[in-house]
Amino acid sequence: MIGKALIFMVPLLIAAMGGLITELAGVLNIALEGMILAGAFAAVVAVDLTGSLAAGFLAAMTASGLMAVLFSVTSLRLKGNIFVTGLAINLITPPLIAMVSKLLYGSGGVIRLSSGTLNLSQAESLLWLLFFTGAIWFVLRYTPLGLRIRTAGTDPDFLFSRGIKPAGIQSLVIILSGILCGISGAMISLKLGVFIPGISAGKGWIALVAVYLGFKKPFPVLLSCFIFAIAESLSDAAQGIIEIPANLILSFPYFMTITGLVLFSIAKKRKQ
């Protein structure tokens, strides 16, 4: 069970790390879902064309990175409402993919790979989990960029007074999160060797939830991803034993997050 959860949570965690750095930099990143999907698609297309896994990951990071650029331009440069533009990224990705897919394959549907699928063992999964969490933790803590990211979120004016433009840091972080989402998407689709419209299946939202539940700190976020993964495998296993309506299970993350948010707000209010 735990081993299975470890494998399941790799893409989730990587996306959550993307959500974490943007959240810390003061950007509410609704667009994770769309960026993951873009990455999943680009990865499969690239592997299909070149047969190389590395090319797949590279293409995924580029595609998601480009979506991130679009997100950052419309929200930061054009000063759009960040929630609305983030949503727009999620809305724009599926039809874009369908259209590109139609151009390339003549169909907007499932793309199967004949070869080159990615297979992570439990040990490798654990390694990747620790690597990404550790890397983000390290960047946030021990690099100049990390200091800038953290300050951009809490005290952008202070950052500006030190001669650094907060919007620049935010754009950079959005693009970084796009690249992470690309990796995440590539892992989802390459693991199965297939792209299916909607394959991201809400992982971007869950990742964002994990960021909130993990108090916006790398290792607690890892933990909350783990809890999600365990909950997911429990509910998978439970289907064989007891009947829980799938739709009700799907509503849990939403209600869990709102509960977390309310508790967080109460604590904040008490402190004042």
């Binding site: 419309t74 000063k79 759009g80 609305v84 533009t85 727009a88 809305l91 599926p94 039809p95």
Partner: peptide, 16 residues
């Protein structure tokens, strides 16, 4: 797909 795409573009630009 174009229908969805147009809606998304509206969203991208409308709040600018």
């Amino acid at each position: 797909e174009l229908g969805g795409l147009i809606q998304a573009v509206v969203f991208l630009l409308i709040s600018s």
